[in-house]
Structure formats: structure tokens, C-alpha cells
């Protein structure tokens, strides 16, 4: 009898452990995001606009900023940066454009996801305006200039001399349509 009791206790502890670890697997998802954000390590830039206050522009230092634009394979657009690389001074407010052309004969909805390399530089790359904050809609064969206004934080570590901003454009026509209408109404 005593053995059955202690078996039961141990089994329930082990099953609880297994269920707990199943939950832990899912808990890793928010944990991952929080850790990456706190440590600033996976190259994700802020998804909201930062405000630019007048600051001293560090003329003594030049940072190379490179732009890359990629499209996911099922996205029927052409997507290119206006300039592939530029030299900027930290603190300087810069405007550049990306160009998007819808090559298909249907209205398509896109979402650009930015990523900065090296990852530690992401926290110092501030965008006051970015097309990636919103979904982009292009009617058949239409094209658009997509603006990006950014500045590099003067606190950027000395070890980083080049920042690469890469956008991947995803086709979200199927899943993002309703959100897009709401977004348009709000605007």
C-alpha cells in the first residue's frame, strides 16, 4: 500500500514536470522577445516612430549605412532602395526612399520587416518615419515611393562603423486585408 502511495506521488510530480516543460516551451516565445529587446541582440528595430530632438551632429565621425531590399518568393512586386549605401554623421536626420512596383494585375498588400546588422547596432538606428510601420497597398501595376527618415544615435559604439538595414517584403494580401482597412480608416 505504501508503495502505491509513493508511486502515485512520484508519478504526479513527473507528469506535472512534463506538462510544465510543455508550457515552458511556449513561455520561451515571449521570453525570447523580451531578452532580445533588453539585450538589443537580434537586429530588430523599434516598431514605432522615434522622435528627433535637435542634437549635436558628430561631424568627426562617419558611419556607412547600407540598404537592402528583398521580397519573399510569392510577392509579385519589385522592391529596391533608391540608394544602396550612404555616409552619414551620427545625429544627422536623413531621408531616403525605397521604390516599390506592383508587377501583378491584382491589388496586393505588403508588409516590410526591417532587420539591422550587426544586431547590436539596431538599438542605435532610429526611424522617425518608415513605411515599415504600416502595411503597403498597391493596386495593379501601380508604383510608389516609400519614404524612410532616420538618424543614427551618436552613442553608437565605436566598434560599429557600418550598419546594414535590410527589409524583407512579405505578401500579406490574404491575411492582412481587414487590418489594412481599419488602419486606413484610422488614418
Amino acid at each position: 500500500m505504501e508503495k502505491a502511495e509513493s508511486n502515485k506521488k512520484l508519478i504526479s510530480m513527473l507528469i506535472a514536470g512534463a506538462i510544465g516543460m510543455f508550457g515552458f516551451g511556449f513561455a520561451l516565445v515571449p521570453l525570447y522577445d523580451v531578452l532580445c529587446e533588453q539585450l538589443g541582440i537580434n537586429g530588430k528595430t523599434s516598431s514605432t516612430a522615434s522622435s528627433y530632438q535637435a542634437m549635436t551632429i558628430d561631424k568627426s565621425r562617419t558611419v556607412t549605412v547600407e540598404f537592402m531590399a528583398q521580397i519573399q518568393s510569392d510577392m509579385p512586386w519589385e522592391f529596391t532602395p533608391e540608394m544602396k549605401r550612404m555616409q552619414v554623421h551620427p545625429g544627422e536626420l536623413i531621408r531616403t526612399n525605397f521604390k516599390a512596383i506592383n508587377l501583378s494585375t491584382e491589388e496586393t498588400l505588403g508588409q516590410a520587416i526591417p532587420s539591422v546588422s550587426p544586431g547590436q547596432g539596431a538599438a542605435y538606428f532610429n526611424k522617425t518615419e518608415c513605411f515599415c510601420f504600416n502595411q503597403q497597398r498597391l493596386t495593379a501595376k501601380a508604383s510608389a515611393e516609400l519614404p524612410l527618415i532616420f538618424f543614427v544615435d551618436p552613442d553608437l559604439p565605436e566598434s560599429i562603423s557600418t550598419l546594414t538595414l535590410s527589409y524583407t517584403l512579405y505578401n500579406i494580401t490574404d491575411r492582412g486585408y481587414v487590418d489594412a482597412i481599419e488602419q486606413g480608416a484610422a488614418r
Partner: peptide, 9 residues
């Protein structure tokens, strides 16, 4: 017991 549930997740 620790990792097979993570695989299941």
C-alpha cells in the same frame, strides 16, 4: 521528461 515536451511544443 524535461525536453520531449519542449519538442512537442
Amino acid at each position: 521528461i524535461a525536453v520531449m515536451p519542449v519538442l512537442a511544443g
